[in-house]
């Protein structure tokens, strides 16, 4: 008799386990299905990283717009009247590094703009042009230098051997 009862209990346990297993399988399958078909899962590590970065940057963006020591952090452009107009119109094709490298007077900056309009698809800047040219000529004006400048920024070091 005790033998029979044991057998019966074992069978019950087996059925119980089987049911649990089936339920677990169904739940897992359901989630797997969702993950594979319903979510547009990024296809590789690079895109996962890109998505995360894009999200992080979206949150960090306002900070990027800060001005520190007279420099607009995101672009490296000098703070000054017309900065917003320059950011809006001059950083769409190339980075602002191309601007901050260059020096010219009003005529020179105007010539560069005309060249980009004639050959590089830059749009008509309308009334913004004057604001932009004034900003550039004021903040990125030519410095006086001779036919050959002295050597500068030398980092002295002991020559070995």
């Amino acid at each position: 008799m005790p033998d029979n009862k044991d057998k019966w209990l074992k069978q019950l346990l087996w059925i119980y386990r089987a049911i649990l297993g089936i339920i677990a399988f169904m739940v897992t399958s359901f989630f797997l299905f969702i993950v594979i078909y319903a979510v547009d899962w990024p296809s590789d590590d690079a895109s996962i990283a890109a998505n995360t970065r894009a999200k992080e940057e979206a949150q960090a963006a306002p900070k990027q717009d800060e001005i520190v020591d007279g420099i607009h952090v995101a672009t490296g452009l000098k703070a000054g009247e017309g900065l917003d107009v320059v950011i809006a119109n001059c950083t769409a094709c190339h980075s602002a590094k191309l601007i901050t490298q260059n020096r010219a007077d009003k005529k020179g900056w105007k010539n560069m703009i005309v060249w980009m309009q004639e050959t590089q698809n830059l749009w008509n800047l309308g009334t913004n042009e004057e604001v932009i040219v004034n900003y550039l000529a004021k903040n990125y004006a030519p410095e006086k230098k001779g036919r050959r400048a002295p050597l500068t920024n030398i980092k002295w070091y002991e020559l070995e051997d």
Binding site: E57, A61, D65, L77, D84, N89, S95, W123
Partner: peptide, 23 residues
């Protein structure tokens, strides 16, 4: 980018005036 683009009125669509370098 956290700031309205009020000065881009002459800019055609499809341009990104965000001054964030290639990441």
């Amino acid at each position: 980018i956290g700031a309205p683009i009020v000065y881009g009125k002459n800019m055609p669509n499809g341009y990104i005036p965000v001054a964030v370098a290639e990441e």
